[in-house]
């Protein structure tokens, strides 16, 4: 019914009012362009332009000394890309970034899903309080969080090792250890980010009709079986969506090593973003943009795969 009335209304509106048939449409598009113009100008100058500029720069030998004359540089073809892949530190950074994403994304989603199920099924009273509490770290500055966590992870006077000491565990010097520095950053990222995916899971869970669970109960399925075979498959699009948004964020991790480890010890926590920033700092603009574009391509491919997976069902 509503659809019909809406179409009718549109049909009525499309009929030009008698007397001035063409002016009205041109007035509408004139107004549209006035409303669109400020955005388009800012967008062209500060987003679209730089995206193309970055691609162009990645094929040149532009360095800091060319800052004032960015158009008088030489093309080097894929030289910067070759250089990036031949650079041992870049490969190390790529490995670290993959490590961060491959371990961090599933952990974040498992914690987020557990929290969402806990709030949706178990915690009825004070649900809003728990929801806000778990979400709190998401809105805070990663820089500030990283500074705080440096103290949480401090070897002797730190919070974590003190708590571990209560149960007889002698915790390592987390951030100074080649083995533990990266897992420490991942733990912090999970702690900070799970609230975001939790909110989306919660919305997904609340969208599943009660009758689905009831049907499972009638068939005699236990609560774990109901979750595994009824709820989880229904959450599939939500899980895919959160894994990609979380993954895109984690692929760009930068502040955590910048503040907590400066990429060390021995480059064991340096990320692609951080190494890109370092190359910019060294004045190698062409190389930095090539590295950024490699990251961009990875992100684009992952997003593309997500759309394909979503379309299958």
């Amino acid at each position: 019914m509503t659809v019909v009335t809406e179409t009718e209304a549109r049909a009525v509106r499309r009929t030009p009012p008698p007397g001035r048939p063409r002016r009205k449409i041109s007035r509408e598009s004139a107004a549209a362009w006035i409303l669109v113009l400020p955005f388009v100008l800012l967008f062209l100058a500060f987003t679209a332009g730089p995206v193309l500029g970055s691609l162009g720069m990645s094929f040149t030998d532009i360095k800091q000394r060319d800052l004032r004359t960015p158009f008088s540089v030489n093309g080097v073809g894929f030289g910067n890309y070759v250089k990036a892949f031949e650079d041992e530190t870049f490969r190390k950074a790529a490995f670290n970034t993959a490590y961060f994403v491959v371990l961090g994304v599933p952990l974040t989603l498992v914690v987020a899903l557990a929290a969402a199920v806990l709030l949706d099924r178990g915690v009825k009273r004070f649900q809003a309080l728990f929801k806000v509490g778990y979400y709190l770290p998401v809105v805070t500055s990663i820089v500030a969080i990283a500074v705080i966590w440096r103290f949480v992870l401090a070897p002797d006077s730190g919070l974590l090792n003190t708590v571990l000491g209560w149960v007889g565990i002698d915790g390592p010097n987390w951030l100074a250890s080649k083995t533990w520095a990266m897992p420490s950053l991942i733990a912090m990222a999970v702690w900070r980010n799970f609230g975001s995916a939790m909110i989306i899971f919660l919305a997904g869970l609340q969208g599943i009709p009660q009758s689905v669970e009831e049907a499972g109960q009638i068939d005699g399925a236990g609560s774990w079986q109901r979750f595994r075979y009824l709820i989880l498959p229904l959450l599939r699009p939500t899980i895919l969506f959160t894994s990609v948004t979380t993954g895109i964020g984690y692929l760009q991790f930068f502040e955590e090593p910048f503040v907590m480890t400066q990429g060390g010890p021995l480059n064991s926590t340096i990320s692609v973003s951080m190494y890109t920033y370092n190359q910019f700092g060294f004045g190698n603009y062409g190389l930095a943009t090539a590295m950024a574009y490699i990251l961009f391509v990875v992100i684009a491919v992952i997003t593309f795969i997500q759309f394909r997976l979503l379309r299958e069902k």
Binding site: F46, T47, P50, G53, L251, Q252, F254, Y285, T303
Partner: peptide, 20 residues
């Protein structure tokens, strides 16, 4: 389409632009 573009991609040309 620009929603997924990382800040790392644009900051170098943006720096050149803003400086000039």
């Amino acid at each position: 389409a620009t929603l997924m573009i990382p800040g790392m991609v644009t900051f170098v040309p943006l720096f050149v632009l803003v400086t000039n």
